[in-house]
Structures are given as C-alpha cells and as structure tokens.
Design a binder for these strands. Sequence first.
DNA 1: TAACACAACTCCGCAGACAAGTAGAGAAGA
DNA 2: TCTTCTCTACTTGTCTGCGGAGTTGTGTTA
Lengths: 218, 218
Amino acid sequence: MADQAATLLLDRIRSGEWALGERLPGETTLGPQLGVGRSTVREAIRQLAGLGVLASRQGAGVFVAALDVREDWDAVLRRSDVVDVVEARIAIETEAAGLAARRRTPADLRAIRRALAERAERRTAPEEHVDADTAFHRSIVAAAHNPILTDLFDGFTPRVRQAMLEMLRIRRAFGGDADQQAHARLAEAVAARDEAGAAEASRAHLLALREGMAPSSP
Amino acid sequence: MADQAATLLLDRIRSGEWALGERLPGETTLGPQLGVGRSTVREAIRQLAGLGVLASRQGAGVFVAALDVREDWDAVLRRSDVVDVVEARIAIETEAAGLAARRRTPADLRAIRRALAERAERRTAPEEHVDADTAFHRSIVAAAHNPILTDLFDGFTPRVRQAMLEMLRIRRAFGGDADQQAHARLAEAVAARDEAGAAEASRAHLLALREGMAPSSP
DNA sequence: TAACACAACTCCGCAGACAAGTAGAGAAGA
DNA sequence: TCTTCTCTACTTGTCTGCGGAGTTGTGTTA
C-alpha cells in the first residue's frame, strides 16, 4: 500500500500537478487523498526522497526536487532491442580495439593472450564458451584504457549474454575454428599495434554476430 | 535520523555483514541497534527498498536484494576525464554516422540540413554556437535510428558542453569556415548514403576536438 | 518603518495496537 | 519412520495518538 501510494504520488508529480520546487500538501492532507494513514504517506515520501524526486524540510513541508526518476541505465537496456545493443557494442568495441592497439601495455597483451587461450579451451558448454568469449573481448576493451568504454562494455554484456546463448543453441556457427581464428587475428593486430586492422577485425566479427541475431536486418 | 539510519544500514550491507538474499534482523531488533524507533527503521528500509538494495516480504522479513546502490550513470560521467568522454563520443558518433548514411529517411535529411543551416548562422555567441553544433550532431545520431546510441549521445553532451565552451574561449579554432565545411561534408556523405565517408568525416572532426582538449594526449 | 514576539502550521520521531502474512515446530495419521 | 496437517510464534504492514523541533506568516510594539 505504501508502494501504491508512492506510485500514485509519482504519477501526480509526472502529470505536472506540482511544479518543480513547489510544496506538496501536508502529510495529514495527503493521507486521506491517497486513502492511507499518515505513516504510510511518510514511507511513500521517504521512498521518493531516496530516488531524489522529493525533498522534505522539517517545519516547511515537502517539495518537488525532480519531475521524474532518473532513468536507470539497466532499465533502458532491458527494454531495448538486442540488435540495437549489439550495434552499440560494435561502436564501442571497434573504437576500443583501435585504441587498444595504440595503448596496450605488455601486461594487457599477456591478459589478452591468456583470455584467447582460455576461449580456445572452453568450446563445449555454451555458457562457458559465451563467458570466455566475453572475457576475451573485455580484455581488449580494457587495454584501451578508457574507463567509460569499459563501463559501457560491462553494461552491455549482461543484456547480450542471454541472446548469445540462445543463438548458440540454434546455430553452431560460432565457436568453430574459423571463429577462433578471427579472434586470434584481432589479438595479433592489437599486439602488432595495427590500429586499423584491430578495428576492422573487431567490426567484422561483431557484424557477423549481429547478422546471426537478426538475419533480416538491413 | 531516518537518513542516518539508512546510511548506516547501507554501510553494513556494503561491508558484507549480510550476504545477497540473506535476511536482516527484524525491525524491532534493528531499532535498538541503530538507536532509533521502529517507524524510523521502517522509513530507512523503505528508502533503501526504493533504491533496490532491500526487499521486504510481509511475514517473512527484510532481505538484501543488492549489495550496493546501482551507480548513477551521470555520476560516472561527472567524475570522468573529459578526454575519455570525447573518445566514447567518437565511438558512438562514427558508428552512428555510418548507420545514418544507410538508414536516413528524407525527414532525417531535412532535419540534418536544417540543423546545419542553423549551425552556420549561430557563430557569434559561444553558448549558441556550441548548442547549435550539438544539435547538428544529434540530428546525425538520430538518423541512425538506434535508441541506445541516441541515449548515449544525450548522456555525453552535457558533460562535453562545458569543456567545449572553455575551449572556444581559449582558441577560436572551431566555428570557422573550415569547420563549417567539414560539417557540411558530413551532411552530404549521409545524404549520398556514403557510409565510409560519413564515418570518416565524423571521426576526423571529433579527433580534432579531442586534440583541442588535450593536445598532449597520445 | 523596522524589529520583535508569537501562534499556527509543518515535518520528525516514538510508542502502542491490531491486521495480515509467513515459517517452523509439533501433533496426528498412514 | 515418513508424511501431512494444524497451530503458534514471529514478521512486516498500517493506523492512531502524542510530544518535540523547526519554519513561516501575522500582529504588535517601539
């Protein structure tokens, strides 16, 4: 019921019933309006205050601090098309591959080669293979030494993982020798500091991934 | 005091006192521990529940739903280096430019050309120029018809805006005729459905932007 | 006109009571 | 001995009343 009251309140805020910074009716007034007691109203207000929508000042009242909840990044991804997510991944990873070729340290290179070897071993169980593949790609992105690109990559992978598992079950296209060699080429391009080559290798692989997910996509 | 209790509780969760999914002590037990009454504990729990850290089930208890608050995307960008943000923008926009060249509709093209003309007009006041420039770039990204790329772009721009304004004050490199012509080339590449050309034009311009911000960066 | 006192209102926190729900202990039966 | 059922103790959910602390607007006074 407190959750319900909070939702109701948020809807009224979203509808523009109160302007930004405006004062809401008092707890005692709001209670009967929402059909709940005072403590329930207080809990609802606390909840919205935690989300930054409301701010209460003792003695003064409750004020609108934001007109809506800052949308959660995970929520955006969850309700997005997987193909769109993969396209964003293409953007991130091709750029990251190029930067990685330029900035990789010997330690990065060791990590990349270790992840590549790991990926070659784990090719039986779908879950393990997908995770090993993700770990390899992550080692490339990490070598770009750009925390934002890394964060973005980490945000994308959970959403893509499920789709990759399903794809792997339907068609065995990935996980074959050709696929592994494509990854090896990417690793070698990074090792050779070949920016264009790394970007191209990354892009080619991910485009294939996108096609596998939505063959009809233009 | 409720906020204080919530912070205290969050700290204890962060410290690993309770595992993920574990049940917390009851409200009546937690109250004396935190030095507050039951209703105050309830409000603190509500607050954390709104953030997704706790989840309470009537009759069963309160359970840990997440070990920490989901980090806000804005906060990540705020504490990041601008150069890193620009690099992420390069990744997003070059990919978006290529996609835009493929998927643009006549309406997209009209919007792009309108934004380009607007950009050509507003070249006196720094704020107006930066905003017009951003609007033009956004019209390109929007033409890619990928909501994730658009959201990412919208997330980046506020962070970059400030830095661009400062840069514009120091050096007048941007806003000149050459700069405007570079943008026109990008628009025309999208119009001509030249994917590689659009991507390259976008990349070249943004690389120059990055150099302007951090001349020493490799 | 300006400074002050005050009263009404607000949120804050506490305590107690009851309702609604859960989960485990214990009894009953097979 | 195992299974099933019932019941009790405990938990959260909600309401109400109370006093404390803070703010704000009004009226008074110098």
